[in-house]
């Protein structure tokens, strides 16, 4: 059976270092299988996150040969196994141990985004009517599996560490899903401009490239949100109209 070598980050903090592990490779294997094999054979305390193993839960995010990817969706047959395969933890978040990072910041950011607020129900029985086309418009954003690869690759977070001022691509996708939700009446545009710091994004589209769900993050989520910010805050005519505009409809329960 052919064998391959995996160079994996081990340890935590200052003492973290690469360690090489060689293991058998069989047909159809993905990087996560190799990590599990190493765990069972020679490194039982090797820390990594995983759950579904089918690209649906977004737990096993890592950097493979320098690229942010899901380990469960990266087939060994797509990598050059004549060289060591390098597996590292995400870089935009504090390192915990081995391949695990502290991603709790993402959960805190999400919590501060204004939640879904529906319009009043359309029917007397308390239900709504929506067209499939309205639903389809936001499905792309709702596919997000929260793997945080987009956050990892975004230079505003990765290189400039603007975690306090910038929500990151994942949360712009989340905000877009809410803003374009057919029933939602909440207004998040001021927050996007303010505490979410959408202005920091300079549309390098790195997030779109790494998204395992193929969400067109920049073009479909971030740019339309930026346009809303511009319309609301910087367009002189809109600013004038806003003074006279009727208030948004009241929310339902």
């Amino acid at each position: 059976m052919p064998r391959a070598t995996f160079r994996i980050t081990r340890g935590s903090g200052e003492s973290a270092a690469f360690k090489d592990y060689t293991t058998d490779v069989s047909e159809g294997m993905v990087v996560l299988d190799a990590v599990h094999q190493v765990q069972a054979e020679s490194a039982p305390d090797l820390a990594c996150r995983w759950n579904c193993k089918a690209g649906k839960c977004g737990s096993c995010s890592a950097e493979i040969n320098g690229k942010p990817r899901l380990m469960c969706m990266t087939r060994l047959s797509d990598l050059d196994l004549s060289m060591r395969v390098i597996i590292e933890p995400l870089r935009a978040f504090p390192h915990v141990k081995d391949l695990v990072t502290d991603v709790s910041w993402n959960y805190r950011v999400k919590q501060r985004i204004r939640p879904f607020k529906p319009r009043k129900p359309d029917a007397p029985d308390g239900t709504w009517r929506m067209q499939q086309s309205d639903v389809d418009r936001v499905q792309e954003f709702r596919k997000c599996i929260e793997c945080f690869l987009c956050q990892d690759v975004c230079h505003v977070l990765r290189d400039h560490h603007k975690h306090e001022e910038f929500a990151g691509p994942r949360h712009f996708v989340y905000a877009a899903a809410l803003e374009m939700h057919p029933l939602d009446v909440e207004d998040r545009v001021g927050d996007l401009r303010g505490k979410d710091g959408i202005g920091y994004c300079n549309i390098t589209k790195c997030c779109t490239k790494v998204c395992p769900e193929h969400i067109t993050i920049t073009d479909n989520a971030i740019i339309p949100l930026k346009e809303r910010v511009v319309d609301e805050f910087y367009d002189p005519l809109t600013r004038l109209f806003r003074i006279f505009r009727p208030r948004k409809p009241e929310a339902g329960s």
Partner: peptide, 16 residues
């Protein structure tokens, strides 16, 4: 649905 879930729809706009 009231909490934000979006299901596929019937032609008359209800949950498919």
């Amino acid at each position: 649905e009231a909490w934000g879930a979006l299901f596929d729809r019937t032609k008359d706009g209800r949950i498919l």
